[in-house]
Design a protein around this nucleic acid. Sequence first.
DNA 1: AGGTGAGCATTTTTT
DNA 2: ATGCTCACCT
Length: 667
Amino acid sequence: MSKFRFFDLNPEQQDAASHEHGPLLILAGAGTGKTRTITARIAWLISQGVDPAKIMAVTFTNKAAREMKDRIAGMVDPDQAKAVTASTFHALCVRILRGDANRLGYKNNFSIFDEGDQTGLIKKVITRVCAKDEKIDHNLAKSLISKAKNSGLNASTDENSLAGAVYRRYQEELHSLNAMDFDDLLVQAVKLMEEHPEVRDKWRARIEQLMVDEFQDTNGLQLRMVGLLASGDPPNVCVVGDDDQSIYGWRGADVSNILEFERHFPNPKVIRLEQNYRSTNAILGAANRLIRNNPRRRGKNLWSPQQGGEPVRIIAVPDDRKEAEFIVEEIAAHRRSQNLPWEHFAIIYRMNAQSRLLEENLRKHKIPYRLVGGKSFFERREIKDIMAYMTALLNPSDDQSLLRIINTPPRGIGATTVELALSHSVEHRQSLYEALRHDLFLETCTRKAADAIKRFTDELEETRIRVSTPGAPIAEIISTLIENCDYMEDMKRTCKTPDEAMNREENVREMIRALDEYQKRSKDGLQGYLDEVSLDREREEDKAETALGVTLITMHAAKGLEFPHVHLIGVEDGFLPHDRSKAEGTVDEERRLFYVGITRAMKSLIITWCRARVKFGSPMHCLPSPFLQEIKGEHVEEETYEEIMSRPMGEEDIMAQFAKLRAQLSG
DNA sequence: AGGTGAGCATTTTTT
DNA sequence: ATGCTCACCT
């Protein structure tokens, strides 16, 4: 290891990067160069002769996986970098399951149900299982099911309860559709490896060094998976995380995985990364003072050699409208006086709903902004349609996909016919598709309906054969399928504006184009492409890195990001420790959430709270978050809106006033 | 089918 | 205030 370049790592980072065998726990505080360290470790392992193809890095997001691969590519030989696997938990599970799901009674061509598909199926199950007067809320059922799955295979299904009945029925339905939801991918992959050690061993043999990023966000199943995949004795597993940034408990993440790492992987080497390369000491001081109020933590103190910096400001403002106005003007003045790009500013809040007032004010001032998150990008009808066509081709048992496309576009197979087919399929214990191909069924239909069905299924059959021919031009074939049924025309017909039609059409074309490119770079065909699309819903805001401006983002979504100048808004009691989390007893997690927010800031941090705000339509009195008491100390200033407004104006403020006037005149 | 209105709850969302 | 769901209507 003498000759290895350590890429400017500090001593602790070097220690972590050059650990060779056995469990390693890297406690990496915010901004301490975590990614740099693990990628350097990968480079180091390769330099020590570890086969890059036997290094596996598991992340939570595709973005993180891509970033890691990119960073590695900058450190080692390109071929070696390409051989390293960086994958999300879910994508890895799909790879495992595509090989051997048949051992669990699924077919290897199972469909992946996204949240929308899942909700649809749960709703259907509820109408079947529940009496009219005691319907269980489908959102509740969904979260119950998810919790049950994530907490482990043996979780009781509540034999007698209604929720238990819904769960069991839902699972049966999924199975008969040959489909898995996101949680199932984990459940089934773990089950597969636990019940079939030879499958586990096959994967273990391919993994000599296993790394897990954001370990504080793992749930029980993911922990088990790590245990199954790690090879060596003691296992060569390196996990990286920060217990203080565990903010996904409500989604099933279990902090005890990282807190009690030693229990799962005895005698690990534990390394703390505490030197922070991101923030001023003013900001770190506030963060440290806050987080030390949490019980049950490994304990860590972020420090930085750079001195104080701008004080952290806590500002009380009269109400949420004034808050939004104030912040936007503050940003405008700040960026004007120091000639900064808008991208240096972020406004971070607890709830998406809080973005609205900010957006209004930013628009009024003609300030560019990008809103991260929200739900608007998710469900694009046309994309789901095309995916349903592809899914139905690959997995004919998937009634849901088939139902989606059977009369989209309208092809003369109406609701009545579908109902008939469905009951026929239930009676004969077939899939819907089998029923449609069944002469016995076709005879019960009208001549017209039977013809329509025949045309439809024949086309699917033919396409399936063409697609499964090795080397076939898949994108072209799918494109033809869609052309032939006039999908586009029908889709455009149902659009309200020509603009919308254009947009959707472009989405479909993009989808086909992406399929074509996928085929060029991969041998996994249509199935592989569908998996990728299902598990990697590229969010537009990530893709469009060119459209920049002030960032509006929730604290959750901000984890892992950094901004020179940060505003944390709406830091009020009942809002930041959210009332709901107080009731649920998860205030610690709220404190960590605030900690995440604070540690996003590099140079300046301004925290505001409102004395009143409009809640549920009516104005309510508010108190400051109790967390604000905790961060007070050196380099933290408290002010009020009134004090700031009554201060004599400096030149900058005058300029800002002009800017405001100008904006008002033109807006 | 697809649109309209009453009724209702109202955090966060990597896959 | 607002957005979403479900039931009912055209």
